[in-house]
Design a binder for these strands. Structure first.
Lengths: 300, 300
DNA sequence: TTGTGCTATCAAGAATTCTAATGAGGCTCT
DNA sequence: AGAGCCTCATTAGAATTCTTGATAGCACAA
């Protein structure tokens, strides 16, 4: 009889393409994974993986089996969640990953509502950039994460959460008119603060700058959200940030916010979760709160 | 994390309505089952069963959970079967239960084809009456069984296999014309050999006799197939048997076979298998052979 | 050749799962 | 009321399974 643990091992190896990485993800040793997979292969009487010197690949039969047991694993978790939904109060942990952009304005209200309406739910937030969050979700250290849209990944369910608009943000002396859309190409050469290279938004912003022939004087890469905000407020540098982060600056006294226009630059936010595990009820509720909050912020 | 074994325990208890019987069915001890169920209930945080002094009953939440994990268990077995179907040769065991009526004529040809076409498949046949076969299927001592249609049972998948016609069978001196349909009500009082009370066919036959005012002189209950056949051949007693058993008597020299008519009396054959486990590939193939054979016999 | 990546294998210890015995409660018969 | 029989729950120890860490082997690249 093949156990769920063994199936998890097969799934991990299939998705990671490597026994070693699968072991890391499953908090196990390579040896244990190897034994599990070997046991499964033996009791099925078929070879699931083609071993090469730099990892493994699913055989056709292995691929079919992998798809089947994905359903089994998901089903077993769904059953738990479903059963728990019949309890009076929502409880249990929620471990959510969110990008810094959301953490400034959208997080707190959602958190507050959640904490007061479902006091038995313990929430753990991890703030980080998409790469780190994605890894944590894969390792199931997080139930889900909200990150910028990206190319997709094996073993993850990706679904669209909201679309936000990028803004040009500068200080009082930036010359920007608060709330008035700007066309970047028409501005004098920019002194621009951008995220660093490993940030997904960086690539999108650069794309936009080159394809719309925006003139850039100087570029500074900075991954510190608060640092950036403070820096542009005090100097003549500007930066590009999504609308959701701008709510605290709505009055326009400290910082000037100008929607990028002609064409607008959008930021698509997606939620990601492990494909092999459905979201817990409490996680779904929290995600709903977050989404509600983001949509509200985007609308303003 | 809830294991498949634990789920099996929950399913068994749900279907048997008792920890003790579930333990028997699972080849385990009542203690083990109790612990498994307790663990599951604890990790779900809900009560799955209402304990009474004469067994247990699913709570509403328990019922939902039961239905979910049935799918999970079936899925995990399906994955195995599916994976094995990608192997070159069919192999593994088939444990089939069939009623004596089928064993006389339908079994041997199906068995022979199976044995010669799939030499790696080991077949084990259990002959018995529906009660015993049903129990064995529930205990998973058998992969499937073919029995007369009946009222259904929890934990079993029942599906129609074939419909056969009951025949009146007598010896040379019975006065029956071989192959000519008879109306039982028009015959002189019958000296009838029937199955015994715990046989499903018995009830159907009695129903027929009373609702169609058939005159019966004497009744003898006998559960021995060969004994019955031999007995009616030598005496003026007659019996009622389905057509599938009559193939060896097609010539009409030893026994006379007369289809019961106005109205005909049918025997519906169903296949039963555990609901929580799909049929293995080899079992499905064998069942197909059996079905083919039965249909051929019924047609003649 | 040496180094680096990968998976397989082994034996021992840790952890889990099973079992057998016993307990506690309810029902039914005498 | 008490004996007998049924139910499920609870233990402690036995049996099994899982996990680990060390090691071996293999393929490829420098």
């Amino acid at each position: 009889m093949i156990s769920l643990r063994q199936m998890r091992s097969v799934v991990a190896v299939a998705e990671e393409g490597s026994f070693t990485r699968a072991a890391v993800r499953e908090n196990a040793t390579q040896s244990g994974i190897s034994q599990h997979v070997a046991t499964v292969e033996e009791s099925l009487g078929i070879r699931l993986f083609e071993r090469t010197s730099e990892g493994v690949l699913l055989t056709p039969a292995g691929d079919r089996y992998y798809k089947k047991i994905l359903d089994v694993l998901r089903g077993s978790e769904e059953a738990i969640i479903d059963a728990q939904s019949s309890r009076e109060t929502l409880s249990g942990p929620v471990r959510a990953g969110i990008m810094p952009v959301l953490a400034r304005a959208a997080l707190a209200p959602a958190l507050e509502r959640m904490a007061c309406q479902h006091s038995d739910v313990s929430i753990h937030i991890m703030e980080g950039y998409s790469g780190a969050l994605t890894d944590s979700v894969k390792a199931e250290e997080l139930d889900f994460a909200v990150v910028p849209a990206f190319g997709g990944a094996v073993g993850l369910n990706v679904s669209h959460l909201a679309r936000d608009r990028e803004m040009l943000v500068g200080g009082a002396q930036s010359g920007l008119v608060h709330g008035k859309p700007v066309r970047l190409a028409e501005l004098p050469p920019l002194k621009l603060v951008t995220p660093s290279r490993n940030n997904i938004r960086k690539a999108r912003i650069e794309d936009y700058l080159t394809t719309h022939s925006v003139c850039v004087d100087r570029v500074m890469e900075m991954d510190a959200m608060f640092g950036t905000l403070d820096f542009v407020a005090r100097t003549d540098w500007v930066t590009i940030l999504p609308g959701v982060i701008c709510a605290p600056d709505l009055d326009g006294t400290v910082r000037r916010i100008a929607p990028i226009d002609q064409p607008p630059l959008y930021l698509d936010l997606v939620q990601i979760e492990p494909a092999r595990r459905p979201l817990s009820l409490q996680a779904r509720v929290f995600l709903e709160e977050l989404k509600k909050e983001v949509e509200e912020l985007v609308a303003t």
